[in-house]
Write a protein that binds this DNA or RNA. Structure first.
Lengths: 126, 126
DNA sequence: CCACTTGTGTCAAGCCATCGATACAAGTAG
DNA sequence: CTACTTGTATCGATGGCTTGACACAAGTGG
């Protein structure tokens, strides 16, 4: 089964589960890892897998629908909405952020670029 | 401008304020933006500035002290703890963070490494 | 010693998120 | 049409977080 994407909830994170879920899905959709019209698991199934109540998952879906990232229809499930024009590659955003912060700490570009090579190598197989 | 660092709390973020504060401070300390022995604002002052109760700020300080990142002493205030021998290079930490987040979004290592090259090029001359 | 600062502890009150269960509404599939 | 799927809504109970106020403990500086 090509499960496709893993969604997780950290019970030790004080952030409410519905919000953890909402953020993950929002990021995944924004990153294009979830294609348009891709179908998400039914609320009952996802709730069961994550050990959450149905209403908790439903809330995450609902908020994402209000944000225009999902479309829910009773009986037909919940699917990824069409992507708007204001979408930017989140990886580029993360990379920009890293460069800005690292420069603020006084590192030069070679060090910065090299650091990520090292991090990838270090965390290979996580 | 001796203000030093900006701490903020977003009321619209469902993450508890004490946790928002804890994370910001933890990140700042880990990244080396708050030097060893740097003194943080008194709980009453920070609580007043952020519109929080004293106990809420105190909780953030307390958890960071338990984590070894801060040292609090009555009457003497709260300061950034000494960085132990196991201290990570701040840049390595930033890089690890980027890799972890990008992988969670489904990017592969080549994309991640390349994104930083692109960001360095893009932001050349900032 | 003294006044002040600062972190810590307690308490009651209220809000919010979660859970578990249940019922209902609306679409799908036969 | 019927059976099933799926999202939505509600209810009470539980627990965590915040607030505001207050008291207390411990260090600082004169």
């Amino acid at each position: 089964m090509g499960a496709g994407v893993e969604l997780t909830v950290d019970p030790d994170d004080p952030t409410p589960p519905y919000e953890q879920l909402r953020r993950q899905l929002s990021d995944l959709i924004g990153a294009g890892r979830l294609a348009e019209n891709h179908r998400l698991p039914p609320v009952r199934q996802l709730a069961g897998d994550l050990g959450l109540a149905v209403g908790t998952v439903a809330r995450a879906y609902r908020e994402l629908e209000q944000a225009g990232q999902l479309v829910s229809r009773r009986g037909a499930g919940t699917r990824v909405a069409a992507r708007g024009p204001g979408t930017r590659d989140p990886l580029a955003q993360l990379a920009d952020e890293l460069v800005a912060r690292a420069r603020a700490l006084g590192y030069d570009d070679d060090q910065i670029a090299g650091s990520v090579q090292g991090a990838v190598r270090r965390r290979r197989g996580d």
